[in-house]
């Protein structure tokens, strides 16, 4: 049986299997169709209907259940997550699992299309070491991403020593996993 305990391990393995079967486009389609539209349809419905309130309802219990160490900062205009210990990437790092080129892309791969459908854009960075940050704003809000520490205070993951790895990926007002700047 394929179980949920080590889900992140076989999930990551599946990305590479799909890439070998149908290339990058099949992996992108998987994140959108299988994860965003099927597995996480409860998140899609919640955020589509309630916007930022829906994000609060979804990401509170989910991240806690997954064992994340994180901080959430919410205003009327922005929903921000500072992920200090990603349970998913952390599992892979601890177990030495690395099949797919960039596991961290899967989050933008399913959350991006979800946010686009719900009318939001995303500013985001991940450092491939289990830390990342996200800011979701309505698409008609042209505000740039916050400067380090101004929105999340001392919980801002960008203030961590060693935050900036040589391979940090950056997204600006994006909803597409390939829109790295």
């Amino acid at each position: 049986m394929i179980g949920c305990y080590d889900f992140c391990g076989h999930y990551e393995w599946t990305f590479e299997w799909l890439r070998q079967q149908g290339g990058h486009e099949l992996v992108r389609a998987y994140w959108d169709e299988a994860i965003h539209q099927d597995s996480q349809l409860h998140a899609s419905q919640l955020i589509g209907e309630k916007g930022i309130e829906g994000m609060k309802e979804y990401w509170g219990p989910t991240l806690a259940d997954e064992g994340a160490v994180y901080e959430r900062t919410v205003t009327e205009d922005v929903f921000r997550i500072d992920m200090h210990e990603c349970p998913s990437k952390g599992f892979l790092l601890r177990n030495g699992l690395h099949q797919y080129a960039d596991y961290c892309d899967h989050c933008m791969g399913w959350i991006g299309p979800l946010m686009q459908k719900a009318g939001f854009v995303i500013d985001h960075e991940h450092n491939h070491c289990g830390q990342c940050w996200w800011e979701m704003r309505r698409i008609d809000d042209a505000s740039p991403a916050s400067a380090p520490g101004t929105l999340a205070g001392t919980s801002d993951v960008r203030l961590r020593p060693g935050w900036k790895s040589p391979a940090t990926d950056h997204y600006e007002r994006a909803t597409d996993p390939d829109d790295k700047t």
Binding site: C4, Y5, Y11, T14, Y30, S39, Q40, R94
Partner: peptide, 26 residues
């Protein structure tokens, strides 16, 4: 493969089921 949690998160069964459906469809 071991995790820091004693048990998995059951909602991941949604993704396992969805993965099978996706591969079947495509």
């Amino acid at each position: 493969y071991t995790d820091t949690k004693p048990a998995g998160h059951a909602d991941f069964y949604f993704a396992i089921n969805a993965t099978f459906r996706f591969i079947l469809r495509h």
